[in-house]
Amino acid sequence: MRTTIILKTASNYLLPVLLVFSIFILLRGHYLPGGGFVGGLIASIAFILHSFANGLNKTKELLIMHPGFLLPLGLAISFLSGLAPVALFDLPFMTGLWSHDPIAILGSVGSALFFDIGVYLVVNGVTLTIIFTISESA
C-alpha cells in the first residue's frame, strides 16, 4: 500500500493520542456517553490506522503479542469481576461492588468498571483479530 509521508508521521503521533482517548472514553462510560464497546472500537481503529500507515508488521511488533490473546484476557477479567462478589462476599453472581469513597476523575470505582475493561479488551481483540487476519490473507 502506498502511503504518504504525512499520514505515516501523523499516525505515529495519533496512535498514543487515540489510545489515551479510547481509555478516556472507556473510563467515563459510567457517567457520560462512552464505555467499553466504543472505547475498544476506538482503540482498534487507532491500531488499524497505524498499520495502514506503517505496514502490518510494524503494528504487530508494537503489540508484542497477537491481538487474539486479548480475547481470553478480556473474557477472564469480565468473568472474574462478576465472580468477585460470589468469592469474596458470598453474594449472587455479578452483584455490583463499590468503593465507599469516590476516587478522583473516575468517580466511585466498582466491579462494573472492571467488567467494562474486560469488554474493552475483548472488543479490541475481536476487531484487531478480524482485520489483521483478513488483511494478511487478502
Binding site: 459510567h30 462478576g82 475483548v122
Partner: peptide, 29 residues
C-alpha cells in the same frame, strides 16, 4: 452508581447478557 443509563444496563443490570455477547464476539473472531 452510574449516570449513563445505557452503559449501566450493559455492564451492570444486564451484565450477564453482555458477558455472553463478548463471548459470541470472541467466537466470531
Amino acid at each position: 452508581h452510574g449516570k449513563n443509563v445505557v452503559n449501566v444496563i450493559l455492564v451492570d443490570f444486564r451484565g450477564a447478557d453482555t458477558l455472553i455477547e463478548i463471548s459470541v464476539l470472541s467466537i466470531a473472531a
